[in-house]
Design a binder for these strands. Sequence first.
DNA 1: AGCACA
Length: 286
Amino acid sequence: MAGMSHQPYDPYYLAVAPPMQDYGAGFAGGEKGLINTLFVSGLPDDVKAREIHNLFRRRPGFDSCQLKYTGRGNQVVAFATFFNHQSAIAALHALNGVKFDPQSGSSLHIELARSNSRRKRKPGSGPYVVIDNRSNEASDAREPSSNDDGDSESEDPSKDDNHESGNEDDSETAKSGETTGADGTAAVENLSEKPVDGNVNPCSTLFIANLGPNCTEEELTQALSQYAGFKMVKIRGRSGMPVAFADFEEIEQASKAMEELQGSQLASSDRGGMNIEYARSKMRKH
DNA sequence: AGCACA
């Protein structure tokens, strides 16, 4: 967990926010000037804010979202805000193009928002909010901003109030084992304990499983190339359950990619999100 | 849970 100093960057996506807004100290964003909000369209007009929230809530670095009835026709759009730019990008790649409603066949179109959501996360407000600009229709779509998420999983609303800046790993890093001292010293040696991430030894090659049958190396490259140090990805075992190996220059870079892409779903996937682990051995040089 | 290429 120690000093990873540089952020990966991707020239395609380094969108810079217009300077006219104030990113004050209370703003949820990390790196100032970078877009960390996604604009979501292609939603069915009966979409609920809860659904949007469920769509994004598991993405690493997710902060909050809002559903907006534009008032133009029945168009509905949504904004999802993340704690930093890269998390937003990762979620974009993970969810762009996925079928949102199998019945209607509508698929999501996700892009970076033109500007960041300025909405501060107030202590009282829920994880999602609805803005209804429709003119005269019945206000049947009001959503309480409380937790009626549908599926109840372990969620702890009490710990996501204060992400001000630079949260490299705001996720659950140390959960099993009290080796992380409150004094800041993280003693990471506990011999009689299985690795925290359920994984083996760190490796600069990643093993990626739970891919859909028609996942391509191109698609994976799309998602992976946003991370610094990415070299290449290879798909193996095309029969039934394809897996992939993604090679990075450095272990730290592989770790970063794994953290952020863990569980994210590719557009091609017909199952859940990717399952990423360190590979057992480094990809051989080509 | 599924880890290849040489």
